[in-house]
Amino acid sequence: MKLKRIVLSIVAGTALFVPAALAGQNQLTPVVRASTLKNKITTVKSYTNPTLYNKNGKELVSQDRINFKKPINFYGQPIVIQGPRVSAFINLNGMPQAIVNGETYADLGDGGYVNMKSVGSYNWNNNEIGIIKNTYIYNSKGNRLSTYRGGNAYLTKGSKIKYAGKSWTTYPDSYFNLGDGTYLKSNNVNTMNGKGVLKLNANTAIYNKNGKRISFNGQQVFPKYSIINYAGKRRTKTQTDDYYYTNLSGSKSYAIKNYKIKGQDYYYIGRGAYIKAMNVGRINGNPVFRDGGATTIVPQTDLYIYNSKLKKTKQSVKKGQKIRALDPVVLGSGDIAQLFYRIKGTSNYVSWGDYSEYGFEDDEHVGYFNFRVRLNPVKTIENTATRAAEESD
């Protein structure tokens, strides 16, 4: 498995460490001001210990080689690892699907579609779709095809057909080298070199206090996944803090100071340099939330639209379509709670999925859509259906 070649940044106090390039496992060792926590990280509090990986992003068999109760040495710069291949549909209904004229179809990957009422199974190992009912094959508009893959556009009960599209994906991320072939995903890092950290969710430009782009130690953009020390300390969230995170139990909220520059929120990283708060996905290893405002979401599969009462309609949005959304709401509670975002300018919603996964480890990979900024739900809704489901548990 190859490592993605990318320059990652570590900003520690006034020192910026950027290797010229990362090729394979080549790394440079940073030099920082003297400190008992030099080249050490601590991990964020969790109910379980962080997962350890090898250089290819695969989980190690032995997970007890690191003592997470004390600062941990790291070596060189964080590197971006593509990670192992996983099913592209593991979190998306379990198989390739599309919505055609208000109905769900199995996507065959090359322009053909089969109504899901005729589908019985999908095999992740060989990408075969099992047919349980005689069916025609249709195009993306729901029109019956005359031929398909050089033959009849018709499938019989008990037959199988292979999905022809890309069936796998990877989840690249930055990792710290802990030595002896052991790597830790940067999501777990609470402090680095004795200071709190920001993790970037996008390539991020650097600005001065007037909102003008500047260079910081010769670098004008920090790459996505970079780990950056911020200036100052965390504090209990105030009314002026738009972006924040919570403790493990959710009982307390914390923030680092937001600076307003031309109406937008920025974080100060020292030496007159600022970065946009919306480009920070984690603070001290904790997922960042924002109260209010809108964000851009991108569906990872076709999604049904729900009306103002959160009832599913026959309308839909397409995979990859950029949508402005706001005002998340939670339907139900406990194990059945589902999260919805409202489509801006409408009273309609789309479903993100299982609310219990929201704001936890790697939640950017488990929902039905990706979000630019993680918004805090504005309310929880209970109705007859959710109450009945809760009572039956």
Rank of each mutant, 00 (worst) to 15 (best):
residue 256 I to A: 04
residue 327 D to H: 12
residue 235 R to H: 15
residue 36 T to V: 11
residue 280 V to L: 08
residue 86 V to G: 09
residue 270 G to E: 08
residue 59 E to R: 11
residue 103 E to T: 07
residue 187 N to F: 08
residue 25 Q to W: 04
residue 250 G to A: 07
residue 62 S to Y: 02
residue 244 Y to N: 01
residue 379 K to M: 05
residue 148 Y to N: 01
residue 79 I to D: 05
residue 337 A to K: 11
residue 151 G to N: 11
residue 297 I to Y: 08
residue 318 K to G: 08
residue 127 N to D: 13
residue 191 T to G: 07
residue 158 G to F: 08
residue 71 P to D: 05
residue 245 Y to W: 06
residue 333 S to E: 11
residue 92 L to H: 14
residue 180 D to Y: 02
residue 93 N to V: 15
residue 367 G to Y: 10
residue 204 T to G: 04
residue 307 N to A: 13
residue 205 A to N: 14
residue 105 Y to F: 13
residue 251 S to G: 03
residue 351 S to C: 12
residue 71 P to W: 08
residue 299 P to N: 05
residue 315 Q to A: 15
residue 88 A to Y: 07
residue 374 R to Q: 01
residue 102 G to R: 04
residue 32 V to Y: 10
residue 350 V to N: 06
residue 355 Y to I: 00
residue 101 N to E: 06
residue 281 G to R: 01
residue 70 K to I: 11
residue 103 E to I: 04
residue 36 T to R: 13
residue 205 A to I: 01
residue 184 L to A: 12
residue 208 N to G: 04
residue 225 Y to S: 11
residue 41 I to P: 08
residue 155 L to D: 00
residue 219 Q to H: 04
residue 188 N to Q: 09
residue 223 P to S: 15
residue 124 W to E: 13
residue 244 Y to W: 09
residue 12 A to F: 06
residue 335 D to A: 15
residue 123 N to M: 03
residue 325 A to Q: 11
residue 317 V to C: 12
residue 67 N to C: 07
residue 335 D to F: 02
residue 202 A to M: 13
residue 121 S to T: 09
residue 70 K to F: 03
residue 140 S to W: 10
residue 35 S to V: 00
residue 276 K to E: 05
residue 294 A to V: 07
residue 282 R to Q: 15
residue 385 A to M: 12
residue 108 L to Y: 02
residue 85 R to P: 03
residue 188 N to E: 10
residue 354 D to V: 02
residue 357 E to I: 03
residue 39 N to L: 12
residue 331 L to D: 03
residue 250 G to T: 01
residue 197 V to M: 09
residue 312 K to H: 11
residue 142 G to R: 06
residue 102 G to I: 05
residue 221 V to D: 08
residue 216 F to Y: 12
residue 198 L to T: 02
residue 250 G to F: 06
residue 77 Q to G: 11
residue 281 G to I: 01
residue 286 N to Y: 15
residue 232 G to W: 03
residue 40 K to L: 04
residue 49 N to D: 06
residue 282 R to S: 09
residue 154 Y to W: 14
residue 155 L to K: 12
residue 234 R to D: 04
residue 155 L to R: 11
residue 338 Q to F: 00
residue 176 F to T: 01
residue 121 S to I: 02
residue 56 N to A: 11
residue 288 V to E: 01
residue 308 S to D: 13
residue 107 D to H: 07
residue 167 S to W: 06
residue 287 P to M: 01
residue 84 P to G: 11
residue 177 N to V: 07
residue 109 G to F: 02
residue 206 I to R: 13
residue 150 G to D: 06
residue 148 Y to H: 04
residue 187 N to S: 10
residue 3 L to K: 09
residue 28 L to E: 10
residue 360 F to R: 13
residue 382 E to A: 13
residue 86 V to H: 14
residue 240 T to Q: 15
residue 227 I to R: 01
residue 185 K to V: 07
residue 145 L to H: 03
residue 192 M to R: 05
residue 191 T to Y: 00
residue 374 R to I: 00
residue 3 L to H: 06
residue 336 I to S: 13
residue 23 A to I: 09
residue 194 G to A: 09
residue 177 N to K: 11
residue 166 K to R: 08
residue 275 I to M: 09
residue 182 T to M: 14
residue 223 P to M: 07
residue 205 A to P: 07
residue 253 S to N: 09
residue 248 L to I: 07
residue 369 F to H: 12
residue 276 K to D: 02
residue 98 A to Y: 12
residue 161 I to Y: 11
residue 199 K to C: 06
residue 107 D to I: 00
residue 319 K to H: 15
residue 274 Y to D: 03
residue 304 Y to K: 09
residue 82 Q to G: 15
